[in-house]
Design a protein around this nucleic acid. Structure first.
Lengths: 219, 219
DNA sequence: GCGAAGAAAATAATCGACAATCCTTCGGAT
DNA sequence: ATCCGAAGGATTGTCGATTATTTTCTTCGC
């Protein structure tokens, strides 16, 4: 069994992050310590521990001596996240293509295959399959850039990836544009493995910007 | 008077950061809670508060149930910081040049002037002047990119800037290469105001990479 | 009826103590 | 001599209570 004995502060950190990400805790929601310690069945110390970290990562806003709040969500913030993702993941992909070896290629192929397998079953999708797809999707994008050689770059990409998910969740149901995400992923994978650097980066950027159009379509 | 009544956790956060930055707390140093609460005259709660945030920002490494340590310093990590600074500040400068108005130009001119004024006095430099120069130097680089329009980008640049300082401090005295930092700053400023985008970005990148050569010269 | 001042309630920040976990040391067996 | 394991000590993580601050509510004066 997995070592369940991790600190309460750390596990509650992930729980709160998930709840903000899933918008169970909506933007601007006041995060009172008592309310949270009831919700997550622990004292206030682990709660503060988690909240402090979430503040630095951008999930929570803190106002000194006045409490914690779920970070506000806005079209401007979303656009900012998208632009920074394009910049960082674009560069990370360039470096991966330049430096990646055959083990990296395999990693990309496998991650893409696993995601595609879940895509096929996605028509009749129970919640379990959806969250499995989320994991596979994350793994695919992570695999693409995994050979970039920069720890800092990878960490920033991971952080922005997660921050981005919340907007997908918040905009659920508001979608009008029809997209072929499968094809976009296929294209990115193909160009990457062909080592067509600028083609792959371009496809990746279009992929992200299309997400933006998808969630906040310009009427 | 400024409201000195900020939370202990927040002020101790800045104190510890400064001490790590100045290498008063050296890399890999064990950060025991008792030791720290003695050092900064407070209970363990504010200490943990600060340590949690510093962990996310990359100053401190945490090992669950085993304590906190000052983040390790290595040539690899330093190079990673430098590369990411070039990427992020380069892009931020591009956007600033594209979008900056005349108020931004003034901001850059003033920040540069103030830094230059301190440069002149730097020959006979007591500690106070040095730290004043640090502030002015930071302000200058911040001014350059201040019109980039991306909060996230600015935050990441600020974070990397600070992480970089520690390496300057750690390498103090080991310098052999002679540099003309004044000239480099002048060049960056001039090209920026001339709106020579790629020239300015190139000068900025060379400025940073020269720092790398300066601190870790390839023998 | 409206706004300011003060009291009361609520909540954030901090502390000190306890419990859980890890590290060290010491002794014994192979 | 070296490795393993148990007892002891030290340290982290968590809790409940205390203190400081903010927010809300009430009252008073205009």
């Amino acid at each position: 069994m997995s070592d369940k004995a991790q600190s309460l502060g750390i596990s509650v950190f992930h729980e709160i992050k998930r709840d903000i990400l899933m918008a169970t805790l909506p933007p601007r929601q006041k995060l009172g310590l008592k309310m949270l310690s009831d919700r997550y069945n622990c004292g206030t110390s682990p709660i503060r521990e988690a909240l402090n970290q979430l503040t630095v990562e951008g999930w929570v806003q803190r106002i000194d001596k006045r409490g914690f709040f779920v970070a506000d969500a806005s079209a401007v913030d979303f656009g900012d996240i998208l632009q920074n993702r394009c910049l960082l993941e674009g560069e990370a992909l360039r470096r991966s293509i330049a430096q990646g070896d055959s083990r990296w290629e395999e990693h990309v192929v496998v991650a893409h295959f696993r995601m595609s397998a879940l895509d096929r079953d996605a028509d009749d999708k129970p919640g379990a399959v959806v969250s499995a797809w989320e994991v596979a999707h994350r793994n695919f994008h992570q695999a693409l850039i995994s050979a970039c050689g920069s720890r800092i770059l990878l960490e920033n990409c991971a952080r922005l990836y997660e921050l981005n998910i919340r907007y997908r969740v918040l905009a659920r149901g508001k979608s009008r544009v029809v997209r072929n995400v499968l094809h976009e992923h296929d294209e990115i994978k193909a160009l990457t493995l062909k080592r067509d650097t600028e083609g792959a980066v371009d496809a990746l950027v279009r992929h992200y910007m299309a997400t933006g159009e998808f969630l906040f379509p310009k009427t």
